[in-house]
């Protein structure tokens, strides 16, 4: 069975990327109790940002990160102030429709500006692969994986040890008590949203050298992120990471054994099955899915 090391490598590389997309989504949900249906569109915008920086300014996609991370933090902050703040205390349905509206807006702005054509960011090292033992590593995927892991680890460290991170976790646990303790929860929501968008912005830049970009490119990835987030238990960051790797494994092994045509059905079925059997997710608390509705 020479393919097993390769299957493991592919799973881990893919899982790392999925995790970075999912981690921003689950952070936003955990702190704000909002499912961001525009998450995929921010991913798509980040892919376009890397594509245009490469095409027009000949900037290497990985150098783009230094510009696009602060940029997406700012985009996140502004989109929170303008769009999300008015509905932050509104009903779930109002929040769903607000983020859906944002998603329609961004997707079609991209359509009008960039047309529906799929664009490819082809670096000189596009086809470079590394060999280690029996496994082959695609260079772009490996770099993306390393940066994704670094980003995720630093986000965890930030939440665990920094003062702001602790305030965020306090707000997630109980916003009312947090504001009684003098925490400006409005600011924390804005910061959380901005950090979540920054994560998905980083993911978009890392995906750009691997996948083509087009206005609806976000959907396929964000669907995986939703599934990872629900499987891991909404708001549970570690759970989302493990779930991202599980989905990657299902996708890689499914593609190998029964072909790529049905791989999406496999994880969607897994997702619906888990929703029916254990809607709180694999690692979530029981009953969490009904909280605050």
């Amino acid at each position: 069975m020479e393919v097993i090391p390769q299957l493991v490598v592919s799973t881990i590389l893919l899982g790392g990327l999925y995790a970075l997309i999912a981690v921003g989504l689950t952070l936003i949900f955990g702190v704000m109790r909002v499912v961001n249906f525009a998450h995929g569109e921010f991913l798509m915008l980040a892919m376009y940002a890397a594509f245009w920086a490469f095409t027009l300014l000949h900037m290497d996609p990985y150098l783009t990160l230094f510009v696009s991370l602060p940029l997406f933090f700012a985009v996140g902050w502004v989109s929170y102030r303008v769009v999300m703040r008015p509905v932050i205390h509104a009903s779930h349905n109002a929040q769903v429709f607000t983020t859906v509206g944002l998603s329609i807006l961004l997707q079609n702005a991209a359509l009008v500006l960039f047309t529906a054509d799929a664009q490819f960011l082809r670096t000189d090292y596009y086809t470079v692969v590394l060999r280690l033992g029996g496994a082959v590593f695609n260079l772009a995927q490996t770099v993306a994986f390393v940066i994704a892991v670094l980003a995720t680890v630093s986000l965890f460290a930030f939440l665990r040890w920094s003062y702001t991170g602790k305030i965020m976790r306090a707000t997630a646990q109980d916003p009312q008590v947090a504001s009684l303790m003098g925490i400006d929860t409005g600011r924390i929501y804005a910061l959380t949203w901005a950090v979540g968008i920054t994560c998905v912005g980083a993911a978009g830049v890392l995906l750009a050298p691997i996948y083509p970009v087009y206005p609806t490119a976000g959907l396929q990835f964000v669907l995986i992120a939703y599934i990872a987030v629900v499987l891991g238990g909404l708001g549970n960051m570690a759970g989302a990471l493990i779930a991202a790797v599980i989905i990657a494994a299902v996708e890689v092994i499914g593609s190998y054994t029964i072909g790529t045509a049905w791989k999406e059905v496999l994880y969607l079925m897994l997702f619906i099955f888990v929703l029916v059997v254990r809607p709180a997710g694999l690692f979530g608390q029981r009953g969490a899915e009904a909280l605050g509705t």
């Binding site: 949900f29 499912v35 779930h92 349905n93 629900v230 909404l234 969607l268 029916v276 809607p279 899915e289």
Partner: peptide, 17 residues
């Protein structure tokens, strides 16, 4: 069993399947 955003995601998943 699925409220609010959970129900929304489950219905999207159904249409994609």
């Amino acid at each position: 069993r699925l409220k609010g955003p959970y129900f929304v995601i489950a219905t999207i998943a159904l249409s994609q399947v």
